[in-house]
Simulated scan of single mutants.
Amino acid sequence: MKKFGLLLAGGIAAVVLLSTIGPMVGLLVSLVLLYFIFKQFLKANSTGAKIGLGIIGAIVLVASIHNIPAIIGVAAAYVLYLVYKKWNENKHTKIKEESDPFVNFEKQWNELKNY
């Protein structure tokens, strides 16, 4: 039942992530553009260049605000990571338990005591 819940949560998170890939790419591109516009704004010496870069920066800022639903996609990616981590948690503990010589010794000792 636990695996079914993890599968369901992972499936929903995967669908949400796939549906928000567009806004995630748009947000990334607009933030990169905003960064470079800001750096050019700081380098500009003339007032006209600063006003032009400020206007372009404001337009790109509005575009990046428009892509805020991408944060839901980032949250879905994090949920997918948690589901993957939980899914593989049982496998790792079983392998660790089987490879531990002291655990095997205890099992064998208990088997010998029962005979």
Score class of each variant (00 low, 15 high):
3 K>C: 10
4 F>G: 12
4 F>H: 15
5 G>S: 12
5 G>C: 08
7 L>N: 09
8 L>H: 07
10 G>I: 04
11 G>E: 05
12 I>T: 04
13 A>Y: 00
13 A>H: 00
15 V>E: 05
16 V>H: 01
16 V>S: 02
16 V>F: 02
16 V>C: 03
19 S>R: 13
19 S>P: 06
19 S>K: 10
21 I>Q: 06
21 I>C: 08
21 I>V: 14
22 G>W: 00
24 M>C: 09
24 M>I: 09
26 G>S: 10
26 G>F: 00
27 L>N: 01
27 L>F: 06
28 L>T: 10
28 L>E: 11
29 V>G: 00
29 V>D: 00
30 S>R: 00
31 L>S: 02
32 V>D: 14
33 L>T: 03
34 L>D: 00
35 Y>R: 05
35 Y>C: 06
37 I>W: 05
37 I>V: 12
37 I>H: 06
38 F>D: 02
40 Q>W: 09
41 F>A: 03
41 F>H: 05
43 K>L: 13
44 A>S: 07
44 A>R: 02
45 N>Y: 09
45 N>Q: 11
47 T>C: 11
48 G>D: 11
49 A>I: 06
49 A>L: 12
52 G>I: 06
53 L>I: 02
54 G>R: 02
54 G>N: 04
55 I>D: 08
58 A>E: 07
60 V>C: 03
60 V>K: 00
61 L>F: 11
64 S>W: 05
66 H>Y: 13
67 N>I: 01
69 P>A: 08
69 P>K: 03
71 I>W: 03
73 G>N: 01
74 V>R: 01
75 A>Q: 04
75 A>N: 04
77 A>C: 07
78 Y>M: 08
79 V>L: 04
86 K>D: 10
86 K>T: 15
87 W>V: 04
87 W>C: 04
87 W>A: 05
89 E>L: 14
90 N>W: 12
90 N>H: 15
92 H>L: 10
92 H>Y: 13
92 H>A: 15
92 H>W: 11
93 T>E: 14
94 K>W: 07
96 K>Q: 08
97 E>P: 06
98 E>T: 13
98 E>C: 11
101 P>G: 06
102 F>T: 12
103 V>N: 10
104 N>H: 15
105 F>K: 10
106 E>C: 13
107 K>L: 12
108 Q>E: 09
111 E>F: 14
112 L>G: 09
112 L>Y: 08
112 L>R: 12
114 N>D: 13
114 N>Y: 10
